[in-house]
Every structure is written in C-alpha cells, then in structure tokens.
Design a protein around this nucleic acid. Structure first.
Lengths: 213, 213, 213, 213
DNA sequence: GATGAATGAGCATTCATTCAT
DNA sequence: TATGAATGAATGCTCATTCAT
C-alpha cells in the first residue's frame, strides 16, 4: 500500500532523514530530541541507532545526502551551458529556487549545520568542497576564455559567492513571507552583481548571462 | 594592584565578557560551560548571574557590546570619506583587520551566534540592523550621487556583502595560518568585486575607491 | 561433517553455553551482551531465546550444566576411596586441577555467578547444595568412623572449605601466571590444613590422606 | 538540631555512604539506582557527583572507608595480645561480630564488591592487601616463635582463612535468622579448625588461643 | 555585592527481548 | 527451527541556575 507500509531498509533511513530536516529546522539542532525525530519518522527511538551512529551523524548524513542531490541538480542544470556567465546564472538561480522547494533544508544548511563542531572542523573539506568547486571551475573557465578578469581569485569568488547566497537564503528563510517573484528578483540582483564583479566586459557578460533565464 | 584587583562593577562585567569570547571561540557555545567562563574570568559561578540573565544573555550581550565597538570603528573610519566607494573600501578593510586583531571575536560572530535561537529570531533586528544600515546608507548615497546603478537593491547589497565578508572571515578563522598580506589581498578582492558589481562606471569607481588604501 | 555443521538441538545449546563461559569470563556478566554470545556461538540473537529463557537463565543453566560435570568428576574420583581424609584430599585436588583445565569456568563460578540475584537467593539451594553435601558426607562419615573430631560441624566445614577453595581459585584465576607445580602446592596446603583442622589424630590422618596423591 | 540539619561537607559524604550500603545491600549494586541512593541520603541526585566520581566510585569509596574502620578495629583488638593463636581468635571473632553489627556492610563486601571490575582487577591490591597482611603477620609470627608449623604458607592461610570467613559470613547474611549464640558457635568452629590446621601442638594452641574469649 | 555548594530537570544511548518472516 | 531488524524501557550523569551565607 502507501509509503507508510514500505518498511524496507532504505525507506527507514530516508524517513528518518526527512523527519530530521523537519525537526532540526523547527527546533534547532540542539533543541531537537532524538525521540522527536523517531516519532516523526514513525520508528522507535532505538531504530535510529541502527541507521545512524548518533545524533550528530544524522545531521552530517543529512547534509551529505542532500548535498548529493543539490550538486547533481547544479551539474545537470549547468551542464548544457558553455558560457561561464550563463552557468553562473543557473548556479545562483537554483539556490533561490531551493528556498521555495525545501525551506527546511535551507534552514538546516544555513544555520543548524554550524552547530556541529565536527562539520565545522572536518566536513567542510569533503562534500562542501565538491560543491564549491563548481564555482571555482566556472571562474577558471571564464579566465581561460578571457571573459573573466585575470586578477579575480576563484578561491575568493567561490567562498564569497557562497557566503552571499547563503546569507540571502538565510534571511529569506527567517522571514515568513516569501513569493516567487521576490525570490527571482533576489536571484537577479545576485547574478548581476556577481557577473559585473568579475567580468571583463560587464555589459556583454550580462547580456550573455541573462538571456531568457 | 593591576587590573586583576580592580573589582568595580564594570570591570567584572568586562572580565566575564572577555572570558566568554575566549571560551566560546575555543569550545563552541553549547560545549562551553558557564563554570568555565567563571573560572577564566576569576569570579564565582554565581557572580555571572549578577551581571547576566543567563548563558544566552552572555552571548547576546557579548555581541551587543562588541558590535558597538565595531560599529563605532566603522563609522569613525568611514566618517572622513565622502566617496561611496572609498567608504565601502574602508568598511570591508576593517573587517579583515579584525581577523588579526580579534580572531576569537570573529569566531563567535560568524559561528557561535547562530546557536542562539533568540538571536536568529529577534536580535537580527537591532544592533545587527544598525550595522547593516551602514552599507545600506553607502549604497543609497551612491545611488543619489549617480555612481551606483539605479537598479541595485541596497537591501540585497547589505545582506549579500555581509554574507560574503562573513563567510570569508569564517574560512580564515577556521584555517590556522593567517598573514597580513593574505588578508589584505582578500580584502582587495572583495572590494573590487563589490565595487564593480554595483558601480555605474567600474573603472572610475575602482580608481576612486582604491586610492592609497 | 565437522562440529560447526552439526546443528542438532543439543549442539546449539552447547555452543551457546561454551560461548557464554568465554564471554562472561572475559567481560563479566553485566558487561557481556547477549548479541556477543550469539556471535561467538555462531547463532542469531533470537536463537538464544529458543534455548534459554533470558540472559540470567544462560548463566544459571551454565552453572547447572557444568556443576553436573564437576559433581560427576568429584564422585567418580572419590568413589574408589574409603578413607575420609583420602576422599577429602581428592575433593580438594580436583578443584585445583580445574583452574588449569577450565579457567574461564572457574572465573564464572567464583565471580560472575554472584551477579545473579536469583542465584544468590534461590539457587544456592539446589545444585550447589548437592555439591556441598559431598563434603558434608565425608565429614559425617569421618565422625562415624571416629577419625574426625565429634565437635566438628559438618555444616561449617562444607561451607568453610568451599569458601577457602573458592577464594584461592579466584586469586589464581585473577593472577596471570599459573603453573602446575604452584597449583599442587596450593592444593597440598589446603589439604593439610583441612585435615589437621578436623582430624582427631592429625599425624595419622595426614599419613593416610596423603599417600601417593 | 538533629543529624538531618548537619549539612557540613563531611556529613553529606557520610550520609551518601550510609545510604549506599543500605541500598546496595538491599537491591544489589547493578539494580541500585543512583537516584535511590540520593533519596535515602536526602540529597539531590547531582549532589552525589560532588562527592563521588561515579556510581562505581561510591562502591569503592565505601569499601575503602569501611575497611579503614575494620582494619582499625582488628588492630585495636589484636594489639593487646602476644600469642599468635589468641590474635587469630580475636581476628576471626571480630568478623562474626560484624554480621550482627552491620549486616548490610557484610552483604556489600561479600557480594556487591565483586560486581566492580575495577575492584576485582586493581583494588584487591591496596586496602584489601593491608587487611590480609594482618593474618600473614600473625602466621609469620607464629612460625618465628615456633608454634606454627614451618611448612605452613602464610599466603595460603591469609587468603584461605579470608575465603572461609567470607563464605560463612555470606551464608549468614543470606539466611534471615541469626542469633548471637549461633554466630559465636560459628566463630568457635572456624577458630578451632584454623588453629589446629596450622599449629604444631594443637591441644596447647587451642588452650592458649581460646582462654576466656 | 560575592560566593560556590546544592539542586534536579533533562536526554542520548544501550541492549535484552520479541516476532514477522 | 532460525533469523535479525525492530523495539522502547530504563538511567547515569551533566550543568545552568539558585540561594543561604
């Protein structure tokens, strides 16, 4: 029958993860109780520990799992494009789409993840790096093809752009009201500033980057 | 008879705050014990509660107190300047100076503050807004004088720039090595991207904004 | 085929018991996990409960089962002898042999068994009593034949001797090094003290009791 | 007012220890809850941890503390005597007195202490050794003065006698009924068997050892 | 104001036991 | 019989906060 009856291994894993995003987003990581996640996932407390090492592992696994999806989406969306600015545009846009599609996930990524000492110390080297490298690649590509200024540091851009997007997503997630138009306006602003910020020929870059988005 | 003997009210208040930055930066907010802060401040556990409502209040007071200093510094530094881009330049530079002057404080602001539900929900309206408004004013000023593009949203710039700076400060604080040159390079990158991102005449703006900094 | 493939009922029962002695001896009763015993016995966790009521029942069954063997050995060894002191000698010797033959079992009997409230309260009435009665019979026999002092209490002797042997076995099991010679010296000491302690004519008793052992 | 109002540091320490003996004796170490000890001691759960590292530390401290008393009593009682057998007599007698004076303590020492892996592995080297040495000294003394057989091993006697006494105390503590007469009979039996077991001249030894006890 | 001993609510985690397959 | 995934009750310990001195 329905999804509640599907008790396969991977289903429980997923149910717990889905419950965790909701709970973490609502109460914050430290205020969330493992028992609460279990209840929302419709499993027993102990079952959680068959799938995750401990509470922190739920948060970290959540990040890894969801990042895989996000990175996949980003690559999928960017893959078709060759122009660095169009790729940057798509990269940024997808983030602001996410705010509507999964605000809880955005909450967890922008706020709760920072509660994990382990994440702050170690994790930012793995999946996070893979994610950041997408931007680095775009910038490097732009420098090779001569459309991005040579003195632009891809390292600064990737982290800086991430910070900018992250903060704007956060402020959106914290304020209740959100409509699609506002979000696309937001995306547009970020896109334009970013492109102009690094392009050799800003006007041309904007024209290329923003065609029919 | 040095400072350790000065037991005036404001001194203890300050000693606790100074101890708190150290402790929070080292162990993280949730892992920091009030007793530990008390020990580092050389006061009794109970004394803390004569000066602060509770543990979270220490963090929040810390933020308010230090933000006053930072805002003061920013205003002081910016006050002399009239060119919006020069003001922006100074605004950004001061942040990267802070990483060297008080890395613990940077740690607390970029990471630990997010642990406070109260801060995330309410506080971002007071002292934080005052801080952000500095940028908003700069951008608005630039738009009035016609050097910043009219379609630039000051709201997006203030939050976006904050996010960018914040993330770069965080990544600096997390990595051990830090030298003055690297930091000023970082600042320069952020300055250039920001200015070009919003200026009507980027080349002119950069020339104005970066004179002898 | 080989023993690992023999999955008859009594084989699994035995495999579990053998695994339990090892695990209990190594980790102590309370720190031993049922799952651990199952793994060492090469059966599933649930299978344990087809053969034993619960964890405590494993310990108690273990005791019963092994005590049958020990009592059998004791009776076998003593059966041939008629002289009470020779019987006592054999009784004691066999215990110190056990330390080398099955130290894990000695560990469980001297230490772990005491963790079971049920054993301490009830069990000491059944198999344990049967075991103690061997000594009681010897002493009573000695009193009848006039070689043991009339004012000796068989009840005290049986429990006292058990305690003495038990403690010496324990101290042997706790200390790593153990050699056959040391153990037989130990046995000899206990034998001599016991015999002299209860005999009417100690010298004669020792001579009878210790012939060619 | 009464003892319940004496809240000095050492008083709480003692109250917890006294509560612990009661609780451990009644429910067994593992079944005893820290909260239960706290309630019986009239302190908060957390207070326990101001005085003891953890649950096991309560048990171990209890042993150390009470052993000090017992060792002191033994030395006090034995101190006056010069005859080894009289000293042995007093040593043994005091144990059986303890059964009446503090059965809970006897319970804890004979049964619960064995639950502590730490005690079984490490502790038996310190306070316990000090206690056993009392017997070793007596036996050595007896051998020097030529009243104890030269081939008697003091090591075996000290551990063996301890085991004997221990087991008899345990069996007394486990059985409900206990009267002073029965206990002194018990002591007398142990005394006589021990003395005869090790003496060169048993009759003389008994006469010396048992004068007016 | 200052102290620090005392409080006690709160929770992640374990593991013996069950039961659907 | 046998399995092993799932269960959920149960508890030692921590630590922010209080308050008698």
């Amino acid at each position: 029958m329905g999804s509640t009856k599907d008790n396969t291994r991977s289903d429980k894993h997923n149910r717990i993860l889905k419950a965790a995003v909701r709970v973490f987003a609502r109460y914050g990581y430290f205020n969330s109780k493992v028992a609460q996640i279990a209840r929302e996932a419709n499993v027993a407390d102990g079952t959680i520990y068959l799938y995750f090492k401990n509470k922190e592992d739920i948060l970290l696994s959540l990040f890894e799992d969801r990042m895989d999806g996000i990175i996949g989406d980003l690559r999928g969306s960017i893959g078709d494009e060759t122009d660095p600015f169009r790729r940057l545009t798509k990269f940024i846009s997808l983030h602001f789409d996410l705010i509507r599609k999964d605000p809880d996930l955005v909450s967890v990524i922008t706020v709760e993840l920072r509660q994990s000492a382990k994440f702050m110390k170690e994790y930012r080297n793995d999946k996070f790096r893979e994610y950041l490298d997408i931007v680095e690649d775009i910038v490097n590509d732009g420098k090779s093809t001569g459309v991005v200024r040579q003195d632009v540091s891809p390292l600064v851009v990737k982290r800086g752009l991430f910070g900018m997007i992250n903060e704007l997503m956060l402020s959106q997630v914290l304020s209740r009201r959100r409509n699609a138009q506002e979000l696309s306006q937001l995306a547009k602003q970020v896109i334009e500033i970013s492109i102009r910020g690094i392009a050799i020929d800003p006007e041309q870059a904007i024209e290329n980057g923003c065609k029919e988005v």
